[in-house]
Amino acid sequence: MSYTSSEMMTVAAARALRNDDVCFVGIGLPSAACNVARLTHAPDLTLIYESGTIATRPAILPLSIGDGELCETALTTVSVPEMFRYWLQGGRITLGFLGGAQIDRYGNLNSTVIGDYAKPKVRLPGAGGATEIASQCGRTFVVMQQSARTFVEKLDFLTTLGHGRTGRERRELGIRTAGPQLVVTDLCMLQPEQDTCEFIVTSLHPGVTREQVQQNTGWPVRFADTVAQTAGPTADELAVLRELNERTARAHRSDS
């Protein structure tokens, strides 16, 4: 069965979620992956969106972090201060799922500016919830399209702390959560090396070569001693993802 690299990415990210995770979900790719997980192997996965919706089970993917669908299908909806204070800072969330415009080898993310902060070439949306999601969820996953422009040697701006500019910063800053443990792209999966916390390639998606990964990485990327091959999406996974996307497109078309 044929599939796109973007579908492979979403499915690979979905598989990494556990049934007992309590997951803080970012909009876009993370939201798609989390809902595919919930509709396949992880039916009890708890999804939390920063608009305050706890244990939500949307039938379609929300366009925004606070679509009505999220509130209507949630177990409960709390205020935004309560969400960030009691639930996120309170340590109740096991997994944060993030994206970004740039990532470096230690899993630090930039979603603020390209160029200089005071005189940016491109002004990006900014931190939103990501800064504290990254420091306060038990662990985080990142899902992004991989290219030499997005996987960079040096971030233009450090919006969200991964393992810091040295790989050791979390411990030095007294942060007790694990930080980024997995990066899923349209080409491969990367995980932090045990001692250095540098992200190294641990699995290549079907048909992807090491050269391709290097061409799309802005630093000399390293590979694990044994690099696995990601299993292609199953018919069931693809069907769930495509039906979800189709339901979503239909719903968003009919809004006005």
């Binding site: 800072q89 800064t131 420091s135 306060q136 701006f157 450090l158 919006t159 800053l173 007294g174």
Partner: peptide, 21 residues
């Protein structure tokens, strides 16, 4: 906002560790 509503001069929380902002 919660600090403003609480008539406090500032808000105290865990955050901003190690980031450029």
């Amino acid at each position: 906002y919660a600090a403003g509503a609480s008539n406090l001069p500032c808000a105290v929380f865990r955050g901003y560790e190690g980031v450029d902002l």
